[in-house]
Amino acid sequence: MAEPSPVVESQRDVEDVSEEAAEPAPVPSVMLAGDVPGYDYQAARDALRNAGYEVVGRAVSTTVLLILGERGENNGHKLRDAVERGIPCMDVRKPGRFKSAVLSGEFVGGDPLPEPVKVDRSGVSDRERNRVIRAWARENGWPHLPVQGRVPMQVRHAYELAHQDASEGKAAAA
């Protein structure tokens, strides 16, 4: 009885992989402007990363979507990037919209972009304003507010309500 001859593949045949197949596909990226209702800063970014996106601060060649949260219109550079590059917008200011997108895995644009907020001419930088808000907040019921990072939306809102002009308050009540 004759033994079958073993088939020997050359090393070249086994490793014949094109360079194109060896390069990984670029990861799509999204810009996140503003605060996502129901999510803190890190949780929103983690949700996007888990969905397969990279979160970027400025638009790059892989940016496919601008996710607009509360006060997103304050991020003028992100809004301008979206307009200039034709990047669609997903408005998640409505509670639950971001969560449903996370659960379905579908982040899609098509919402209108707001106009960027005009820069405050008071000359106070965001950093200085945050420092003032933090000091006020510690004196008014938020003793454990972190010294760095974003000032939570509810703290900003409380500060703004406490510092409205009397005339604004009367107009709003009328």
Rank of each mutant, 00 (worst) to 15 (best):
E9W: 13
E9G: 06
S10G: 12
R12F: 11
R12Q: 14
R12W: 13
R12N: 10
V14L: 15
E15I: 08
E15M: 13
D16C: 08
D16T: 10
S18W: 07
S18R: 11
E19R: 15
E20R: 12
E20H: 10
A21M: 08
A22P: 03
A22I: 05
E23V: 08
E23R: 15
E23H: 08
E23K: 15
P24W: 04
A25F: 06
P26M: 10
V27D: 00
V27I: 14
P28R: 09
P28Q: 05
V30T: 00
V30I: 03
M31A: 03
L32W: 04
L32Y: 03
L32C: 04
G34P: 01
D35F: 11
D35P: 06
D35T: 15
D35G: 08
V36C: 03
P37Y: 04
P37S: 05
G38N: 01
G38V: 01
Y39G: 02
Y39Q: 03
Y39L: 03
Y39W: 15
D40Q: 12
D40G: 07
Y41K: 05
Y41C: 02
Q42I: 06
A47K: 04
L48I: 06
R49D: 04
N50D: 10
N50H: 08
A51V: 12
A51W: 09
A51N: 13
A51Y: 11
G52D: 07
G52N: 03
G52T: 08
E54V: 02
E54I: 01
E54W: 05
V55K: 07
V56W: 04
G57Y: 09
G57T: 14
R58H: 09
R58F: 04
V60H: 10
S61G: 13
T62F: 07
T63S: 03
L65Y: 03
L65A: 07
L65W: 02
L66K: 07
I67P: 07
I67M: 02
I67R: 11
I67N: 05
L68V: 06
L68Y: 05
L68N: 10
G69T: 08
G69E: 08
G69D: 11
E70D: 14
E70N: 15
R71H: 08
G72S: 04
E73F: 14
E73Y: 15
E73A: 14
N74P: 00
N74T: 05
N74I: 00
G76L: 08
G76Q: 04
G76H: 02
H77C: 07
H77P: 08
K78Q: 15
L79N: 10
L79S: 10
L79Q: 07
L79G: 13
R80W: 10
R80V: 14
D81G: 06
A82N: 11
A82E: 04
E84Y: 04
E84S: 07
G86K: 00
G86Q: 00
M90P: 11
D91S: 12
V92C: 02
R93L: 13
R93F: 14
K94H: 13
P95F: 02
P95M: 02
R97H: 09
R97D: 06
R97I: 09
F98P: 07
F98H: 10
K99A: 01
K99G: 00
A101N: 02
L103M: 09
